[in-house]
């Protein structure tokens, strides 16, 4: 009994230390964002002598195009989340349930594309979007992220775990394949769809590199790019940057808290569930 108790205490200690390591920078960011000492980040020892203020938050809302960046981020994220959920479910269903010539070849090629690091594709992607005259436009920001192979794979795996008889019952009931997808499989795929939505939301909301490359005027920036641009313009205005960062991370946090049940289910369902 005693040994188990000590083990538990040790485990808890390790976990608390781990949590503090993760939370530390975030807590520090929160403190800095409310501080009126612009040098706090360089002199963290002055925390106790720092005054507290909301002016950093007011500043980023009033003096910066924060609302526009927020609009850009929301627009891109919402569209990409919806298209990812829709297309990956559709493609996943196709790969999981339909038989057609070259299915394995196409799927194999798609999976193989995962082996190419994303960073290598940045230049060809930029050239393509540039040729299409889409640089510094919403289509240019949205188009490359409308569907992802990982999400297709996730949905395919999920659909494959659904009983084959369900599909047969739907066929006998008179469904065509799209009706089967829409009326039988989609309503029963909420955990997987939620997982795809959450992954995509998080990824798109925090995406930095592509919006940075594909935009060249301030009003097309997304929040992460906007926040980064602040650093160069204001150099030492850490409290403002931190205030922005906190605001940027709130939606992701909220989504995670609200949907964490689906998140875990989604991850579980990517493994082999009968």
């Amino acid at each position: 009994m005693r040994a188990i108790k000590i083990q538990k205490i040790l485990l808890m200690t390790v976990l608390i230390i781990g949590a503090l390591i993760y939370l530390g920078p975030f807590i520090f960011s929160v403190i800095v964002s409310f501080s009126d000492n612009k040098n706090l980040i360089n002199q963290p020892g002055l925390i106790t002598r720092s005054g507290w203020t909301l002016k950093n938050y007011v500043y980023i809302w009033k003096d910066l195009p924060f609302a526009k960046w927020l609009f850009n981020s929301v627009l891109i994220t919402v569209i990409q989340t919806i298209t990812n959920v829709f297309f990956s479910a559709l493609a996943g269903f196709t790969f999981a349930k339909l038989e057609f010539r070259g299915k394995n070849l196409i799927f194999g090629a798609m999976m193989a594309s995962l082996m190419i690091p994303g960073i290598i594709l940045i230049i060809p992607k930029f050239m393509l979007i540039n040729e299409l005259r889409m640089i510094n436009s919403y289509p240019g920001l949205i188009l490359p992220g409308m569907v992802s192979v990982v999400n297709i794979f996730l949905m395919k795996q999920f659909f494959e775990t659904m009983p084959k008889d369900l599909e047969k019952a739907a066929l006998i009931d008179g469904c065509n394949y799209f009706q089967m997808f829409w009326k039988v499989f989609i309503p029963n795929s909420k955990p997987a769809l939620a997982a795809v939505a959450i992954y995509t939301f998080q990824g798109t909301w925090n995406e930095f590199l592509w919006p940075l490359i594909a935009t060249n005027t301030g009003e097309m920036f997304t929040l992460p790019v906007g926040m980064a641009s602040l650093r160069y313009e204001l150099l030492t205005d850490w409290p403002a940057i931190m205030a922005g960062t906190i605001l940027v991370s709130i939606p992701t946090l909220l989504i995670f808290i609200v949907f964490q049940r689906f998140f875990v289910q989604g991850i579980a369902s990517t493994g082999g569930k009968e």
Binding site: P163, D165, L166, K168, A169, A170, L171, P187, N188
Partner: peptide
Amino acid sequence: KDRNIAMVFQNYALY
């Protein structure tokens, strides 16, 4: 669907 049949499955296959 055009054979006018109905089928009952081992694992029920209810929606």
